[in-house]
Lab assay of single mutants.
Amino acid sequence: MLEGKVKWFNSEKGFGFIEVEGQDDVFVHFSAIQGEGFKTLEEGQAVSFEIVEGNRGPQAANVTKEA
């Protein structure tokens, strides 16, 4: 699992990017966010995740919000 911070997330469109120190930003789709209820992320929020190869390159999977 990697750790990063949410760079930005558009809850209307359901996607955004996660910043990872020393690496390129990683695309995140709302469907990759773990948990119940409305799936969104806040700018600057700490998250842990895995990287998988998507249709358009690397993207986040199994995203969990850090306490």
Rank of each mutant, 00 (worst) to 15 (best):
residue 25 D to W: 00
residue 39 K to H: 05
residue 20 V to R: 12
residue 60 A to P: 01
residue 21 E to K: 13
residue 7 K to C: 06
residue 49 F to E: 02
residue 65 K to Y: 11
residue 3 E to P: 07
residue 1 M to Q: 05
residue 44 G to S: 07
residue 43 E to G: 14
residue 34 Q to P: 05
residue 60 A to T: 02
residue 13 K to A: 08
residue 20 V to A: 11
residue 27 F to S: 04
residue 55 N to I: 10
residue 62 N to K: 13
residue 16 G to R: 01
residue 65 K to E: 07
residue 12 E to W: 15
residue 57 G to M: 05
residue 54 G to Q: 03
residue 10 N to C: 11
residue 61 A to L: 09
residue 54 G to D: 08
residue 47 V to Y: 00
residue 34 Q to A: 13
residue 42 E to I: 11
residue 43 E to C: 15
residue 8 W to M: 09
residue 24 D to K: 15
residue 64 T to C: 11
residue 30 F to S: 11
residue 41 L to Q: 00
residue 17 F to A: 06
residue 52 V to R: 11
residue 21 E to C: 13
residue 6 V to I: 09
residue 39 K to W: 04
residue 1 M to Y: 11
residue 30 F to H: 10
residue 2 L to C: 11
residue 32 A to L: 02
residue 30 F to R: 13
residue 43 E to F: 08
residue 42 E to P: 06
residue 38 F to K: 12
residue 41 L to F: 04
residue 55 N to Y: 14
residue 29 H to P: 05
residue 29 H to R: 04
residue 22 G to R: 09
residue 56 R to V: 08
residue 2 L to G: 06
residue 36 E to S: 13
residue 65 K to Q: 11
residue 20 V to Q: 11
residue 43 E to L: 09
residue 61 A to N: 08
residue 55 N to E: 13
residue 2 L to M: 14
residue 19 E to G: 13
residue 45 Q to V: 07
residue 40 T to M: 10
residue 42 E to H: 10
residue 34 Q to L: 13
residue 14 G to Y: 00
residue 31 S to K: 08
residue 9 F to R: 02
residue 6 V to N: 03
residue 37 G to A: 08
residue 28 V to R: 02
residue 58 P to C: 09
residue 61 A to S: 12
residue 20 V to G: 04
residue 50 E to K: 13
residue 36 E to M: 10
residue 31 S to Y: 02
residue 24 D to T: 10
residue 57 G to E: 03
residue 18 I to G: 01
residue 6 V to C: 08
residue 15 F to V: 07
residue 6 V to S: 01
residue 31 S to W: 02
residue 21 E to I: 09
residue 43 E to P: 14
residue 51 I to A: 06
residue 14 G to F: 02
residue 51 I to Y: 07
residue 9 F to G: 01
residue 6 V to G: 00
residue 28 V to P: 01
residue 27 F to W: 08
residue 28 V to W: 00
residue 49 F to N: 00
residue 17 F to T: 06
residue 53 E to K: 14
residue 51 I to G: 02
residue 4 G to H: 01
residue 18 I to L: 12
residue 1 M to A: 05
residue 25 D to Q: 05
residue 18 I to S: 01
residue 62 N to H: 12
residue 20 V to D: 02
residue 57 G to D: 03
residue 26 V to P: 01
residue 7 K to I: 08
residue 60 A to K: 00
residue 11 S to C: 14
residue 58 P to A: 12
residue 38 F to E: 13
residue 2 L to V: 13
residue 34 Q to G: 08
residue 55 N to M: 12
residue 48 S to W: 14
residue 18 I to K: 01
residue 35 G to E: 15
residue 11 S to R: 12
residue 51 I to N: 03
residue 43 E to H: 14
residue 50 E to H: 13
residue 4 G to R: 00
residue 51 I to Q: 09
residue 25 D to R: 03
residue 22 G to Y: 05
residue 11 S to N: 10
residue 31 S to L: 04
residue 40 T to Q: 12
residue 64 T to P: 02
residue 56 R to C: 07
residue 2 L to Q: 08
residue 7 K to D: 02
residue 58 P to H: 08
residue 39 K to T: 06
residue 53 E to R: 14
residue 40 T to G: 09
residue 57 G to C: 05
residue 3 E to R: 13
residue 56 R to M: 08
residue 66 E to F: 13
residue 55 N to G: 13
residue 37 G to M: 05
residue 59 Q to M: 15
residue 32 A to Q: 13
residue 26 V to Y: 04
residue 32 A to G: 08
residue 38 F to G: 09
residue 3 E to L: 14
residue 63 V to G: 01
residue 40 T to A: 10
residue 25 D to K: 02
residue 10 N to A: 09
residue 67 A to F: 04
residue 51 I to T: 06
residue 33 I to Y: 03
residue 32 A to P: 01
residue 9 F to Y: 08
residue 39 K to N: 07
residue 39 K to D: 07
residue 7 K to H: 03
residue 22 G to L: 04
residue 38 F to V: 11
residue 29 H to F: 00
residue 59 Q to K: 15
residue 61 A to M: 09
residue 30 F to I: 09
residue 4 G to W: 01
residue 6 V to L: 03
residue 52 V to W: 09
residue 52 V to K: 13
residue 64 T to S: 14
residue 55 N to L: 14
residue 40 T to C: 13
residue 12 E to M: 15
residue 3 E to Q: 13
residue 54 G to P: 02
residue 15 F to M: 07
residue 33 I to W: 02
residue 21 E to W: 08
residue 7 K to Q: 04
residue 19 E to S: 14
residue 13 K to M: 09
residue 51 I to R: 08
residue 9 F to M: 03
residue 17 F to D: 02
residue 4 G to E: 01
residue 31 S to I: 02
residue 12 E to T: 15
residue 20 V to T: 11
residue 33 I to G: 03
residue 42 E to C: 12
residue 21 E to S: 12
residue 9 F to C: 03
residue 1 M to C: 07
residue 46 A to Q: 12
residue 29 H to A: 03
residue 12 E to F: 15
residue 29 H to N: 04
residue 58 P to D: 05
residue 44 G to E: 08
residue 6 V to F: 00
residue 25 D to C: 03
residue 2 L to K: 15
residue 23 Q to S: 13
residue 45 Q to H: 06
residue 44 G to C: 04
residue 31 S to E: 06
residue 3 E to I: 15
residue 47 V to A: 02
residue 37 G to W: 04
residue 37 G to P: 07
residue 5 K to F: 10
residue 32 A to Y: 03
residue 61 A to Q: 10
residue 44 G to I: 00
residue 23 Q to Y: 07
residue 59 Q to P: 01
residue 49 F to D: 01
residue 1 M to R: 10
residue 33 I to E: 03
residue 14 G to M: 03
residue 8 W to Q: 06
residue 5 K to D: 02
residue 7 K to A: 10
residue 67 A to I: 08
residue 47 V to E: 00
residue 16 G to E: 01
residue 42 E to F: 11
residue 34 Q to R: 11
residue 30 F to C: 10
residue 29 H to D: 05
residue 12 E to P: 13
residue 24 D to Y: 07
residue 47 V to L: 04
residue 29 H to Q: 04
residue 49 F to Y: 04
residue 58 P to R: 14
residue 58 P to S: 09
residue 62 N to P: 01
residue 56 R to E: 08
residue 50 E to C: 10
residue 55 N to C: 12
residue 15 F to H: 06
residue 19 E to C: 13
residue 55 N to Q: 14
residue 55 N to K: 15
residue 29 H to S: 05
residue 60 A to S: 03
residue 14 G to I: 01
residue 11 S to I: 14
residue 39 K to A: 07
residue 53 E to V: 14
residue 11 S to T: 14
residue 10 N to I: 04
residue 7 K to G: 04
residue 8 W to R: 07
residue 27 F to P: 07
residue 35 G to F: 03
residue 24 D to G: 10
residue 19 E to W: 05
residue 40 T to S: 13
residue 27 F to Q: 05
residue 37 G to H: 09
residue 13 K to F: 07
residue 33 I to Q: 03
residue 12 E to R: 15
residue 11 S to Q: 13
residue 29 H to T: 04
residue 30 F to D: 05
residue 53 E to Q: 11
residue 35 G to I: 05
residue 64 T to I: 15
residue 26 V to F: 04
residue 6 V to P: 00
residue 61 A to Y: 11
residue 15 F to I: 09
residue 8 W to N: 07
residue 65 K to T: 13
residue 48 S to M: 15
residue 31 S to A: 06
residue 33 I to D: 04
residue 6 V to Y: 00
residue 40 T to P: 04
residue 48 S to G: 08
residue 12 E to C: 15
residue 21 E to V: 12
residue 13 K to C: 06
residue 66 E to D: 12
residue 56 R to S: 07
residue 64 T to K: 11
residue 10 N to D: 11
residue 24 D to L: 07
residue 57 G to T: 04
residue 26 V to S: 03
residue 64 T to V: 15
residue 26 V to H: 02
residue 59 Q to A: 12
residue 42 E to R: 14
residue 32 A to H: 06
residue 54 G to W: 04
residue 59 Q to N: 04
residue 40 T to F: 13
residue 60 A to V: 02
residue 41 L to W: 03
residue 3 E to C: 11
residue 26 V to E: 02
residue 35 G to R: 04
residue 57 G to P: 04
residue 49 F to G: 01
residue 49 F to C: 04
residue 67 A to P: 07
residue 16 G to K: 00
residue 41 L to A: 03
residue 30 F to A: 11
residue 34 Q to H: 11
residue 35 G to D: 15
residue 43 E to Q: 15
residue 52 V to A: 10
residue 56 R to Q: 09
residue 48 S to R: 15
residue 63 V to P: 00
residue 29 H to C: 02
residue 38 F to P: 09
residue 13 K to I: 08
residue 7 K to W: 00
residue 47 V to S: 00
residue 57 G to S: 05
residue 16 G to T: 00
residue 51 I to S: 04
residue 35 G to P: 04
residue 3 E to F: 15
residue 18 I to W: 00
residue 15 F to C: 06
residue 53 E to F: 12
residue 44 G to M: 04
residue 59 Q to H: 11
residue 44 G to V: 00
residue 40 T to Y: 09
residue 12 E to A: 15
residue 45 Q to K: 06
residue 41 L to E: 00
residue 17 F to G: 03
residue 5 K to L: 08
residue 48 S to K: 14
residue 44 G to Y: 02
residue 58 P to E: 06
residue 30 F to Y: 15
residue 63 V to I: 05
residue 38 F to Y: 09
residue 29 H to E: 07
residue 44 G to R: 07
residue 8 W to S: 09
residue 28 V to F: 13
residue 25 D to S: 05
residue 18 I to N: 02
residue 32 A to D: 10
residue 41 L to K: 02
residue 11 S to V: 11
residue 45 Q to E: 13
residue 15 F to K: 04
residue 13 K to S: 06
residue 63 V to M: 02
residue 17 F to Q: 05
residue 48 S to D: 07
residue 14 G to L: 02
residue 62 N to Q: 11
residue 44 G to W: 02
residue 14 G to P: 00
residue 16 G to A: 02
residue 16 G to W: 00
residue 31 S to V: 01
residue 64 T to N: 11
residue 33 I to F: 06
residue 60 A to E: 02
residue 25 D to F: 01
residue 2 L to I: 13
residue 63 V to N: 00
residue 48 S to Y: 11
residue 53 E to N: 10
residue 20 V to E: 03
residue 18 I to F: 02
residue 2 L to N: 11
residue 45 Q to I: 05
residue 63 V to D: 03
residue 1 M to F: 10
residue 46 A to T: 11
residue 36 E to Q: 12
residue 50 E to S: 14
residue 62 N to Y: 08
residue 27 F to K: 04
residue 55 N to V: 15
residue 49 F to P: 01
residue 23 Q to E: 10
residue 10 N to R: 07
residue 12 E to D: 14
residue 45 Q to L: 05
residue 50 E to G: 08
residue 25 D to A: 05
residue 7 K to S: 08
residue 25 D to L: 03
residue 27 F to N: 02
residue 48 S to T: 14
residue 55 N to F: 12
residue 38 F to I: 08
residue 16 G to Q: 02
residue 42 E to N: 14
residue 54 G to M: 04
residue 38 F to L: 10
residue 40 T to E: 10
residue 38 F to H: 10
residue 21 E to T: 14
residue 25 D to H: 04
residue 28 V to E: 02
residue 45 Q to C: 08
residue 33 I to K: 03
residue 7 K to L: 06
residue 12 E to V: 15
residue 47 V to F: 00
